[in-house]
Write a protein that binds this DNA or RNA. Structure first.
Lengths: 227, 227
DNA sequence: AGGTTTTATGTATATTAGACGTAAAATAAT
DNA sequence: ATTATTTTACGTCTAATATACATAAAACCT
């Protein structure tokens, strides 16, 4: 008779002011009580995996995410959980943190965004899971338009630029970047807006998902390189 | 108390003469006895996931694969297994079928390669898993040099061409394809060999993994497009 | 009014992708 | 044995794309 437990964990990234954040909770119960860990927990017998992550995320952080991507299943290390054999199916989520009201809910002592270069030490093997999530994010940014999930619905081009610079860690030419993105044709130009501070006013843009899907159907292939 | 079982399944592709093959077994026991399914089975309590797939593959088909890639974890459909809640961690493997001696081993009635466009109907949700594997294979062929796992150690360029034509389903220019691949610099030219049948004798080539890894370290990025 | 900052747009050049031409080395046909 | 046919090998020209770089416009600051 098999005795293996199945858990789900969420690697949720947020972006704000040139910084990437990871969503963490302080655990209330169990062997890692008072440690920071990724949101997550055991799957219920009659619950699809993807519903389980969403539920845990809601219960522990009050964050609602309509869509998360399956990231990786961690099950090679027999002792990754001190309580016994547990495999974890990890999911990757992206949000603009301004859209969400964070609060430690029923199942957690605290919930907080940490800048990824100033993380607390994480319990279990969750640093490994985080690393895998970051790696995936950095890969995906090149071939899927996921950046828009991390920005506000309406954004200035320089904000998008900053996001890509932050995630890739590379400097690139603003003008060529803008030209490239606009050439895709899935951004709507919302016209000029005053910005706080100095400089010429800038145009805001919005990602048109329908247009993107239409392009995909025509064989379009999103791709960005940052030499 | 959670009651979920954990299984592993293997999507193993082989290539021969312009055809892609899928490795299947005829199940001996259980609700799917006498059905064709993917090799796989329940994970043992003290067994890493990756060891479990390799073990099942060996026990059921006599196939030894040193490396398999995690593909996807199937756990959203509560009733994917009629015996109860089972989630399956699927792995993707690639081999040159000529290198392996196939035989139904202890745990299977039969083991066989099927051309992917002439598959028997598969038990459980294994057609779904196969589809996911095929999709991943077709994606990977564009950005990782996985083709060489499916070819013999030493191969003619036209064989590689046929493989890429088969997997992508597209015609492309032989001359430009060859030029592109050779420009990468990870193939060793083994000189000219007589071929059976007509035509000018051709050079054999070999994939130099060390050279490829060296290139990766220098920032090289494998990429092929088939417009 | 002149300097600074940020945005908007354009152009010239280098690099790469794609289309295509032809010769060489083997077998097959007459 | 000479000529076609098949397959490979190698090269060239052109179009498309990426990269580097120039300049003007619109705001704020002094």
């Amino acid at each position: 008779m098999q005795d293996i437990k199945v858990a789900v964990d969420a690697v949720v990234f947020g972006y704000k002011e040139e910084t990437l954040f990871l969503l963490c909770i302080k655990q209330k119960f169990g062997p890692m009580a008072d440690s920071w860990v990724l949101p997550g927990g055991l799957v219920q017998d009659d619950e699809p995996l993807k519903d389980a992550v969403k539920r845990e995320l809601r219960e522990e952080t009050n964050v609602e995410l309509e869509y998360m991507d399956q990231l990786y299943t961690f099950g090679d290390d027999i002792k990754r959980d001190p309580r016994g054999r547990v495999i974890a199916v990890a999911y990757l989520g992206l949000v603009d943190p301004k859209r969400l009201e964070l609060k430690a809910d029923t199942d957690a002592l605290d919930a907080q965004w940490f800048p990824i270069d100033a993380l607390p030490s994480l319990g279990y093997d969750h640093e490994l899971i985080f690393e895998k999530g970051l790696e995936r994010l950095r890969a995906k940014i090149h071939y899927e338009p996921i950046g828009f999930d991390l920005l506000e619905e309406e954004f200035f081009f320089s904000e998008m630029e900053g996001l890509y610079r932050t995630i890739t860690g590379r400097a690139f030419d603003r003008r060529n970047f803008r030209k490239k993105i606009l050439s895709f044709g899935f951004l709507e130009d919302l016209g000029t807006f005053r910005r706080e501070g100095m400089g010429r006013p800038a145009n805001k843009f919005r990602f048109i998902e329908d247009k993107y899907n239409e392009l995909l159907a025509e064989g379009f292939h999103f791709e960005l390189k940052f030499a």
